[in-house]
């Protein structure tokens, strides 16, 4: 369950891969739902799903932040430069994810409306400010692309560690053991 000296525990791995897949899915869903015609049967369900998943991801990310604090990351055999760079990219991804979700929340709640999560839970509006949806909308759009670019960089770095450097960095997140398979 917990991280070890050499690999990530299953909670961290599940959070990492679950959130990774969801966020990529959310990016695709976001672009797709924006392209829908008004008369499409998914015109309402698309955004409903996007908002609901977004709120769940926000909770998961908050939990992940706590989990990260109480679980030291495995030690990898990497150079100080790699350590600094990866730390910077991870930090930026966390920051972008939170800003992205906050911006999305502000689009939907700018007029004071709550966000309905799967028709069950209402997340109330914290700030009602007419016009906020303009800034929040633009921010949400560009942050999403920036996050995808960083995720691409992150994935390339993982592949670089696995295939070029042949260290256990990717495996520590895939299987929890730093063994090359």
């Amino acid at each position: 369950m917990f991280n070890t000296e050499t690999g990530y525990g299953w909670v961290a791995r599940l959070l990492h891969w679950g959130i990774a897949l969801s966020v990529i899915g959310m990016f695709a869903l976001g672009l797709w739902m924006r392209s829908l015609d008004y008369y499409s049967p998914y015109y309402k369900t698309g955004p409903d799903l996007h908002r609901s998943l977004g709120m769940i991801l926000l909770v998961l990310m908050l939990f992940r932040l706590v989990w990260r604090q109480i679980n030291p990351a495995p030690r990898h055999d990497i150079t100080p430069m790699e350590h600094r760079l990866s730390h910077l990219v991870h930090l930026a991804m966390y920051a972008l994810l939170f800003l992205l979700m906050i911006a999305g929340y502000f689009i939907s709640t700018a007029d004071g409306r709550p966000i309905l999560v799967f028709g069950l839970i209402e997340v109330p509006a914290l700030i009602e400010a007419k016009g906020l949806e303009k800034t929040a909308g633009a921010a949400h759009y560009y942050l999403a692309f920036a996050l995808m670019a960083l995720a691409g960089l992150h994935a390339l770095a993982a592949l670089f560690h696995h295939y070029v450097k042949r260290d256990g960095v990717l495996m520590s997140m895939l299987t929890g053991r730093p063994r090359l398979s």
Binding site: P47, S108, K134
Partner: peptide, 16 residues
């Protein structure tokens, strides 16, 4: 035009 207000922020973004 950006000041359009249909009493729904998401719709206003779409209208813009």
């Amino acid at each position: 035009i950006a000041s359009i207000n249909s009493n729904h922020a998401e719709r206003d973004n779409h209208l813009r």
